[in-house]
Simulated assay, not measured.
Amino acid sequence: MQIAGFGVEAWLNENERTATTDISQSSIAALTMQEVVDLDGQHGQHFYQQLNQLRLDYGWIEGSPTFKKLVSKLYQHVPATNVLQTNGATGANQLAIYSLIEPGDQVIALYPSYQQLYDIPKSLGATVDYWHIHESNQWLPDIEEFKQLIRPETKMILLNNAVNPTGSLLDAELLKQVVALAREVGAYVLADEVYEPLDGTPFVSIADLYEKGIAVNSLSKTYSAPGVRIGWTATQSTVLADLFRKYRDYTMICGGVFNDQLAILILQHRPEILQRNRGIVKRNLKIYTDWVMQEPRASLIVPHGISVSCLKLDLPVDDETFCRQLLSETGVLLVPGSRFDLPGHVRLGYCTQTETLERGLTKLSTYLRRFDA
């Protein structure tokens, strides 16, 4: 099996630990362990008492019944039995694609977006047709272009909603059009939904729109807990869930007793975490957009309360050279847009700690001035 290098992950693996001001990441500022356990209202006492009684065996293979029930409540039409715990959203995407895609299949993938969604199908021998997002259309795709791509033999449509790295959102109207066309040919629709908008923009899951929809999510982005490494697949279809179960046995035994308990605690206190994170998004997005307005070399299509953004920079050098030099000379880390096939741009994660964002933007502006002469 041949597969392309994972652009963004290779960049972060190489550079994120050397950065002193990291404004590249896609999650909302990560919670500390203390902040998570404090959610039990007893400074973690109740959580650790429960944990101390658990044996470090394999635990619940698919995720505990409590976890599965909490996840199912996030959807309107997904029963708890159809929720399968995975190793983050990357594990969920891999599971679904591995379970359904065979050599010679034709799939349609939103592009550019999260690289896993188009390069894993390619590695399995599928033909991947790109449904392009357009900067001229607020980083959204055109449904008329989709109609030209879909065929009677289309096996799967792969979406990233909201889109990484642009922060653009496929709304319910557009998704319903995709579902109607997918239903005509019997295609599956997988949507990686790890980026939930936190600015009040309405969001609908593919699992609630379509009987052959596959929703993928995790605790990494909206829930500020990427280190827990818990994600899931969610489907209306028990047939799909059972198929995933079979393939899951080959890819993952369990999420781990400790991680499952942390995931439960986080999901039980979802309202408090989302309230915290809405505050971060609102505060930091204003700081960021105010900075863009006064920075002559920067322009931005503003994300919809989503923790990633695709910043356009007017530079006389390519974006990767710029990002390497910026990191070397200032300690500021961005992701080159070329790692997402978006040259001339960078991914800027504005939902980091506010002081980190402010410091990073100040350093970035200072560095950009060298190109003004």
Results as ranks from 00 to 15, higher is better:
Ser338Leu: 12
Met1Trp: 11
Gly279Tyr: 08
Ser99Asn: 04
Thr233His: 03
Gly63Val: 06
Leu209Trp: 00
Gly255Pro: 01
Ser218Ile: 06
Leu334Trp: 05
Val83Trp: 01
Ile97Gln: 02
Arg339Val: 10
Gly91Thr: 03
Gln325Val: 09
Arg248Ala: 06
Trp11Ser: 12
Tyr114Ala: 05
Glu16His: 13
Ile214Ser: 00
Leu243Tyr: 01
Tyr195Val: 11
Val36Cys: 05
Ile101Tyr: 01
Cys323Arg: 01
Asn217His: 11
Gly125Glu: 03
Gln49Asp: 12
Arg347Thr: 04
Leu240Asp: 04
Arg245Lys: 15
Phe203Asp: 00
Ile133His: 01
Leu169Ser: 04
Met33Ala: 12
Leu158Thr: 07
Ala180Met: 13
His304Pro: 00
Glu193Cys: 02
Leu219Glu: 03
Leu300Ile: 12
Glu355Asp: 14
Leu190Cys: 05
Leu174Val: 06
Phe6Glu: 11
Val317Thr: 10
Thr238Glu: 13
Leu315Asn: 06
Ser224Trp: 05
Tyr114His: 12
Tyr195Gln: 04
Ala234Pro: 09
Glu184Met: 05
Val78Asp: 03
Phe371Arg: 09
Val178Asp: 02
Ala109Ile: 12
Ala263Glu: 08
Thr81Met: 09
Ala30His: 07
Gly256Leu: 07
Ser99Glu: 02
Gln85Tyr: 13
His46Asn: 15
Ser220Asn: 04
Gly167Ser: 09
Tyr288Met: 13
Glu9Gln: 15
Gly186Tyr: 08
Leu84Glu: 06
His77Gln: 15
Ser328Gln: 15
Ile150Ala: 04
Val179Leu: 09
Ile108Val: 14
Ile306Gln: 04
His43Gln: 15
Val37Ile: 13
Asp242Pro: 05
Glu329Phe: 00
Gly5Glu: 15
His269Asp: 08
Gly200Ser: 04
Pro79Met: 06
Cys351Val: 09
Ile273Met: 08
Gln25Asn: 14
Val216Lys: 05
Ile3Asp: 10
Thr127Glu: 05
Asp372Gln: 14
Glu14His: 13
Met252Leu: 15
Thr154Gln: 02
Leu84Arg: 12
Thr154Cys: 01
Gln49Phe: 08
Arg347Val: 07
Leu159His: 10
Pro343Arg: 11
Thr321Pro: 00
Gln94Tyr: 15
Asp290Trp: 04
Leu56Arg: 15
Leu342Arg: 13
Ile97Met: 08
Ser307Asn: 02
Lys176Val: 01
Leu159Ala: 07
Ala4Leu: 14
Ala180Gly: 10
Ala4Asp: 13
Gln261Glu: 12
Ile143Asn: 04
Leu100Gln: 11
Lys363Ala: 13
Gly5Tyr: 14
Ser237Phe: 10
Ala225Asn: 07
Val189Ser: 11
Asp319Met: 03
Tyr188Ala: 07
Leu39Pro: 08
Thr238Asp: 09
Ser365Phe: 00
Lys73Trp: 11
Ile150Gly: 00
Glu295Asp: 11
Pro112Thr: 07
Gly186Ser: 07
Glu16Asn: 09
Phe244Met: 08
Gln34Phe: 06
Arg183Ala: 14
Glu184Asn: 06
Ser24His: 11
Phe6Leu: 14
Arg248Trp: 02
Val78His: 01
Leu348Met: 12
Leu175Arg: 03
Asp171Glu: 11
Thr354Cys: 07
Leu181Ala: 14
Lys176Phe: 01
